[in-house]
Design a protein around this nucleic acid. Sequence first.
DNA 1: GTAAAACGAGACAAAATTGTATCGTTTTAG
DNA 2: CTAAAACGATACAATTTTGTCTCGTTTTAC
Lengths: 209, 209
Amino acid sequence: MTATSLVSLSAPSPQSEKAPRRNARHRNNRVAIMEAAISALNANAGATMSEIAARAGVGRATLHRHFRTRNDLVLAIGAQCVEEMKAAVLAVDAVNVPPAERLRAMFEAVIPLGDRYNFLGFESADDEVTRSGYQAQLRWAAALVEDLKAAGDIAPDVPSRWVVGQIDQLVWSAWNAVADGYLDVPEASDLALRTLMDGLQRPTAGRSK
Amino acid sequence: MTATSLVSLSAPSPQSEKAPRRNARHRNNRVAIMEAAISALNANAGATMSEIAARAGVGRATLHRHFRTRNDLVLAIGAQCVEEMKAAVLAVDAVNVPPAERLRAMFEAVIPLGDRYNFLGFESADDEVTRSGYQAQLRWAAALVEDLKAAGDIAPDVPSRWVVGQIDQLVWSAWNAVADGYLDVPEASDLALRTLMDGLQRPTAGRSK
DNA sequence: GTAAAACGAGACAAAATTGTATCGTTTTAG
DNA sequence: CTAAAACGATACAATTTTGTCTCGTTTTAC
């Protein structure tokens, strides 16, 4: 469970005014810390700063140099995750294809971000900005579900909330399958799609269209 | 989310030697505390003793009278949940029917215990006894999956870990649907079964046998 | 090579949380 | 109605976690 991440964190967003010109080591540590924190907090929402620092392979003092308070850290991660999710979903929306293919593309794009997505799920409650970003993701998924229903890809009698919940969960299940090493991302996407649309009873056949 | 529980906690197990003959209020409070704790810890694994006491509607001192330490509380809940799960699953095994019907019976029996099940999922790491009880549940589910595969109810090419994970998650999803009030237990069981076996594409038809 | 940047280790103070104890009041059982 | 049981409130000590700071060492950039 030492979570080698499936994606890489982008460099420190160069938005800050008067950015104090950071070291390479500094940038690497920042990424390592955020990665370690996502992993640690996914495993245990109450993970302590010491645990996070240890997992990131830095001293606790360094952790506090990068993120003054625990809350700063959680907020930074939340913002980062929202950004990454937004980008992934935007790429899916770019191409104008039938909803079923958008669903497939979504799985491919979002499953590698499963840990981010999960983080947002239980850590977005505190901060307003992060939460609204997360809510936007859920609304996007809900809209996709409506499109799927309209196209006849999802049975209309199934509550949309249920479908959204299933998609949500499939992303996390698939991420774990990939992290555990028993599936790769395309396989996991296929299996997630198949599970959602056709269930696990049929031999393999491929989805009926 | 004020979680009116779907099941009721049994009276204080009368196993303890020299049981000091408790009050009715005492027994009620014990149940209320455990119920509140399950709910609070499901929402936030790091919930504080004060939060739990407040949610249970008792003072913090009373909480500590019932469970001297936080760990005592978690352990007691864990043991209780394992017992309840064991009983539910035992009832399913009692009747000798095809695996597909056992799956249906399992959903009916376990969905009302969804919050217990979820609790065990992330709080069983600390205590050995609780964890082994939880593991037993997972092994039971794995055995059921093998039976389903053997009976042709689950496609053999799907990794069993994946199937077990889906069942696990469906229980929690279904419990939430019931708690949110948009499904009742039989409906949720049907939907969980349908989702797992046939997916959500088919109109409603009923599962192909 | 050298100076600035970043770090680790450790010492501390400041919360926050837990656990204990006391005391007056309410509830229960009979 | 009464005594025992249980409770709430509150105060307090112990522990854990957080956040700050300093100092000597390592790494980086040039």
